[in-house]
Amino acid sequence: MKKRILITLAAILVICLLLAFLQTLVIPKYADDKTKEGSLVSEYYAEAGGHDVLFVGDCEIYESFVPAVLWEKYGISSYVRGSPQQLVWQSYYLLEEMLEYETPNAVVFNVFSLKYGEPQSEPYNRMTLDGMRWSSSKIDAINASMTDEESFIEYVFPILRFHSRITQLTSQDFKYAFGSPKVSHSGYLMQTGVDPQTDFSKGRTELDYEISDNAWKYLDMMRALCEENGIELILVKAPTNTMKYWWHDEYEEQISEYAEENRLSYYNFIPLAGEIGIDWSTDTYDKGAHLNVYGAEKLTEYFGRILSEDFGIEDRRTDASLSEAWDVRLESYYKERNG
């Protein structure tokens, strides 16, 4: 009888190990160029702590602000915790999680994602949430983001969702089975390509411009969280404006009205693009949808001045341990930039 129990336990252990290994094989590695945004969220933990400014938001945040430039020009230590189509409740829960590790002076949130009031797309949910370590914030984020076709257990055991990839494995799946390569520089996803923007016509009409209560609710929660921790919440809108991601006037009215009411600073960089010196023929890699590295550096330099002068974010380059860490990051930044 004892022998039988031993065999059963051994068998269950072997099955679990096998499934765990298969899981590392089938989960997407987000290592190739088109899908590397999937690794952004998980890269924060290696650099957690010691940041005065934290950025949260969607693709407009992680393609517009360069922490390396902020440090080099203004000594501001920052991190960009962005992910593709990061929805406002995901931004809130990511911020809530980061406050377990550190308390910055300022948090910058890109307001473009406020136009979505309900869960949008399953792949984007996975790209944002799978990178998070397990915490109460992650559980809340999953419950707030799940579309109808998703179920919580598929987040606990990703193999239940990604098992169908078993027939489409590539060499990358084996190479990065135990860890994907680093794709960002403190959360900034460098794009060195150039693809000028030629079409400046108005974006497509949308069904409804009214920002939903659910979106306002999480923005309020973010504001309350920042107040509670003595953090300055800064709202921004990246300078990019294209057919696909058009910042309609109705959204602008609602956001600036909200910022006034709650005495928040809100910077819409679209009209300031000229002043920042952004040239849409050289500073974008996808016809104006996002900035490339040259555009992002210009914007960051401009925004860095606002952070240091208007918000009094100190210059921390005198701090030995910080500057040592940042030197390493700057080196790898320029290696890729000029490489």
Partner: peptide, 24 residues
């Protein structure tokens, strides 16, 4: 008359606008 296509972030599909004389 003209067409413009832009990819979604994360490589999830593309949106293409085709412009004709009186509709897009």
């Amino acid at each position: 008359k003209s067409s413009l296509s832009m990819g979604n972030c994360g490589g999830l599909g593309t949106l293409t606008k085709y412009v004709y004389d009186s509709l897009e």
